[in-house]
Design a binder for these strands. Structure first.
Lengths: 129, 129
DNA sequence: ATGGACCTTGAAGTAAGGTTGAAGGTCAAG
DNA sequence: CTTGACCTTCAACCTTACTTCAAGGTCCAT
């Protein structure tokens, strides 16, 4: 399978696959006599893994580390679990901040509601915000 | 308060504060006779708001828009309130998405605990993801 | 009155995650 | 045998969010 087909199957751009190769996420594939990249089916699995890891919010560098561990023959599982757990902590922090932000904006909105419409003359332009 | 003190209080770099000013998140402060930026206490509140919004994953551009609404009311009140309410809806969507992401990752992590390391075959790379 | 900490500006650099372009090679169909 | 789609490399560019640097001004203690 050439790069275009692999790209189509995974819905990624060929340029992205070359970039992943350069970043060490994809191993350099065989080449046809003409120099075209020639991938096996396992490349598709690998890209699906990368996509899942991306969806979980892992950076390309972290994903490359996981794949390196795998490629060197060891099991990356314990490492992956550590990454996942750290990601959960990050997301919890993000959720907390988002809730605070929501409260701040909701308060602005409530204050806006309480001001009578007459206060909103062209002359006094929303000074309450 | 000069930029260094404000930076220390908010644990940001002075360069970040200048950058925020340039991006329109901080309004240009007064200047001392020597040309130094001179901030009031409200700048600290504003930076705390910015930090919450950042931690919640909003871009600087979006945050600047929210702050614009708060600062200048160039728009009619109803319009401003509409913007605030739409922002709340967006934040609620973000909260929901983030909660989903957290749930997915938490589930991955729980499964990771229960699956023996042998399940990590070279083909699947890592069964957790 | 001098050294060091702090401030100014504008421009350039960095990191992440790519995309785009130039210049050219390959291959199947008509 | 030419056209068009697809491939190659390398380099430059993009966005977001900053940091760093160069060159210089200010403030304060010793």
């Amino acid at each position: 399978m050439r790069i275009g087909e692999l790209a189509a199957r995974t819905r990624m751009a060929p340029s992205t696959l070359r970039y992943y190769e350069q970043r060490g996420l994809l191993r350099p594939p065989e080449r046809t006599p003409a120099g075209y990249r020639s991938y096996g089916d396992e490349a598709e699995q690998r890209l699906e893994f990368i996509e899942r890891a991306r969806a979980a919010g892992l950076t390309l560098t972290r994903i490359a580390q996981i794949l390196d561990i795998r490629d060197s023959g060891a099991s990356p599982c314990a490492h992956v679990q550590g990454l996942l757990d750290r990601r959960i902590v990050e997301i919890d922090e993000q959720l907390a901040q988002l809730a605070l932000l929501r409260a701040s904006i909701a308060e602005l909105s409530v204050r806006a509601e309480q001001v009578p419409a007459e206060a909103c003359t062209p002359a006094s332009i929303c000074s309450y915000l």
